[in-house]
Nucleic acid binder design. Sequence first.
DNA 1: TTGACTTTACTGCATCGTGCAGTATATGGT
DNA 2: ACCATATACTGCACGATGCAGTAAAGTCAA
Lengths: 210, 210
Amino acid sequence: MAPKMTTSSYAVLALLDLKPWTGYELTQQAQRSLRYAWPKSARLLYSEPKKLVERGYATTYKEQSGNRSRNVYEITSEGRIALEEWTETRTQPPRMELEALLRLLFADHGSIEDLYRALDELEADIGEHHQAIVDLMASYLDGGHPFPHRTHLSVLFATFQIDMFKTIERWIEFARDEIAEWETTKDLGMTARTETLTRLLANDQTPLSD
Amino acid sequence: MAPKMTTSSYAVLALLDLKPWTGYELTQQAQRSLRYAWPKSARLLYSEPKKLVERGYATTYKEQSGNRSRNVYEITSEGRIALEEWTETRTQPPRMELEALLRLLFADHGSIEDLYRALDELEADIGEHHQAIVDLMASYLDGGHPFPHRTHLSVLFATFQIDMFKTIERWIEFARDEIAEWETTKDLGMTARTETLTRLLANDQTPLSD
DNA sequence: TTGACTTTACTGCATCGTGCAGTATATGGT
DNA sequence: ACCATATACTGCACGATGCAGTAAAGTCAA
């Protein structure tokens, strides 16, 4: 039986359409460019191209360099057709895992310090990604895009990322100010501040975005 | 061997600390309240409380109603201690799967219509969640929170959600305007508009958030 | 030039998590 | 009385991850 095509399979196939890659290069490239839209483990990125070969969507050969070999994968014309067909299929709903937010929801099991720390860790992770994308944009102006004809897509994508990261960073600031008013994480319930905030939210407004 | 405690285990344990739940109720509650921070399948939500019982963090009994039985789970004092210890551990980095963004990145394999459709689908999914949270806030003002002493946490969490959803919706509008200027998805590269946008982003600004 | 450390370049395996099918009772409406 | 829908799960196949293990190539310093 031909292996099932998952979204990850199409992601790898789309990369192969840009140029042939080795398995290792695919793991690196997926870390750099796909991570923000479709974060997948290196292990999977090594397995996917093999499935594509089985399906006839890619071919492979071993490249020798000294005593060392690596697998190079190349897309086939069947693979290109499969990619085009993919664009017509239904998109999966978004899915966001934010453990820091889970810890906020259940912050009453720990101290205020624990909650601050969860926010700090979120801020550090987001800040790293944020900086990486800003640097990437500077490199597009400077050295250019590795696949120049695709710049319009990468930049529109980056707009999303930076927008999102800024929103999260602004919320973290707001959350810290809010928590600074608490002397405990527990049993505060509907305080005056929280009620004001709830009214705003019930009206589809937020203290930050409007 | 005692089963390993995952973040999902602690999420369920935290729910059990609010009140005893049946397996089915846990799946419903996780859909309603945890979904936005920690989306997990119903299947997992049925398995987790069993592991908690094995660990001694919960007890279980079968409740009979007629010819029908259901498993009720209750937290133990060991479970409460484990929860407190969890708040001191390191938070996992965020992880966002947005297939719509992946399709934007590789939009040059399909038509402009395909790309608009991916954006429409994202907008529909986000819009649904957005509305659900706004309604939830209205219900807090109206009937109140099911666990009133935790309102301050839920509302701060909701601020994050609504903020995020608004950001995504605004970006979708922007992306549509941008794409409206294209006659094709392919090979546009660094257009004048894209260059302006890249300069903005490289300066850590976006056309939306500032 | 030898040794230590990092990077490249993977594979196998155990385990985690998801989707789906299947089973069976209860409930509300026509 | 019948049908749809909600309740209340379990088993199983398979997808995805993490980690350990293997091994060659590059790099820098004593």
